[in-house]
Design a binder for these strands. Structure first.
Lengths: 234, 234
DNA sequence: GATAAAAGATGACTTTTGTCAGTTGGCCAA
DNA sequence: TTGGCCAACTGACAAAAGTCATCTTTTATC
């Protein structure tokens, strides 16, 4: 029985967003034959830190948080991954367990691609390897910037930055509210602070006319105000 | 006039420490012919953030700090690089200016390898590309861990961790003092705090019998005490 | 729609961290 | 030797962040 056209990797537009676009038709066909589609419900984990993965996950739909629990038991969200992102790639290449946990922030659809399909292509398709390398180099730059932000900026600045990031990355709806809705606790885990302080700071932003809230939904009212704040001009 | 044997890349043992070991004899010869050796005095910069690099620097001797100035004007040291490290590699691959500044912490000897020597090898030697990829994947894991530490740990914990890191990475002299001697300001810039708090915290550690100091030199007295501290059991 | 559970919000307080204004002490060069 | 300079150090205070207890609102479920 033939699968639907759009469920085949060769026809999947998602791959234009990641390193898989460097693969040839035949290679994609082989991957498509061995891949497994999976639905992940909001709140479910794709994998947990330390786990040995048998392959990578290509995100077709939905959003996932990648986090790690520090020695003091607090969770830190390191990245928010959505459509096109390939999860588990890094740990597969360095041949370790995953360093991060991946939990769905809303309902997701992912394709699981077995390990040997990826490692095989890294062995025999230099263009693919180079694409991953370039992507990883970029990720490393982002990580370095993140380190500097966490180390040197205040919660105020970091929260302002996160709100702007959510706006530019995931966009806003017709009413101007951020499309990606996170719990206050999750926002705090991205910012790297306690939930209470996150809530208080949001309330302060609201009082200052920078944002507006409606339940857990957030609307940015003064983008340039937030940008100034993030750069330290308070 | 023939160069000294040990100044040729083919004979340089340093390359065993990095991705260059994946190169073939002829490739190394070509690199050797185009490389330029350079001496950097303590305090001098190899490059500054934002600069476009014409190649990479392979560290033969000495230690360099890699840092970035945050929007608030404070410097954050992201990495301490020594013998074998290749600097500028990441920015070359992602074809951007450097994200970090590199400043010598003591007198250094480096080899400058022109850009096209590296990009050329990435194009035509898959083993080399894979070696860099694997290294970069590992660096990314370290960066993620760093993010979690900066975000979730106290200055106490982070300073304890830095001292242990300096000890295991650069070792101690006959008297037990850390071999790599950093100014208090540099230690503070690694930890991500103000110099005064760094000094105060060192004084506290001293009072607790965890360390001993003599001028700017530091000796670890109670390693397991520091390890407990770093993991949050104070 | 009632009820329980979870998430959001707030007050009061403590701890941690940052800042400013000094003093001390070692090192180098004239 | 002396003066100047810089890094190390200290005290006093202010600001930022974390914690705990409690209350309110929202959401989910029967």
């Amino acid at each position: 029985m033939a699968e639907h056209e759009e469920s085949r990797c060769e026809n999947c537009i998602i791959r234009e967003l990641n390193s898989l676009k460097a693969l040839k038709k035949e290679e994609l066909k082989a991957i498509s034959d061995s891949k497994v589609s999976r639905s992940i419900k909001k709140g479910e984990a794709l994998f947990k830190e330390g786990e040995k993965l048998g392959g990578v996950y290509c995100v077709r739909n939905g959003v996932s948080k990648l986090s790690k629990i520090s020695d003091n038991g607090k969770d830190q969200i390191v990245k928010i991954a959505s459509k096109g992102e390939v999860l588990g790639q890094r740990s597969m290449i360095s041949e370790e367990g995953t360093n991060l946990s991946a939990v769905a922030l809303n309902d997701m659809e992912v394709c699981f691609i077995p390990k040997d399909q990826i490692t095989g292509r890294i062995q025999d398709n230099p263009a693919f390897t180079q694409a991953i390398l370039k992507h990883m180099a970029h990720e490393l730059k982002i990580a370095d910037d993140f380190i500097v932000n966490m180390a040197q900026k205040t919660v105020n600045q970091r929260l302002a930055e996160v709100l702007l990031y959510l706006s530019t990355t995931f966009g806003t709806d017709e009413e101007g509210y951020l499309v990606l809705i996170l719990s206050r606790a999750d926002i705090a885990d991205v910012v790297g602070t306690a939930t209470e302080l996150c809530i208080r700071t949001l309330a302060k932003f609201k009082k200052q006319g920078l944002i507006e809230t409606k339940g857990k939904r957030i609307k940015i009212l003064d983008q340039s105000g937030l940008e100034k704040l993030k750069d330290g001009f308070q």
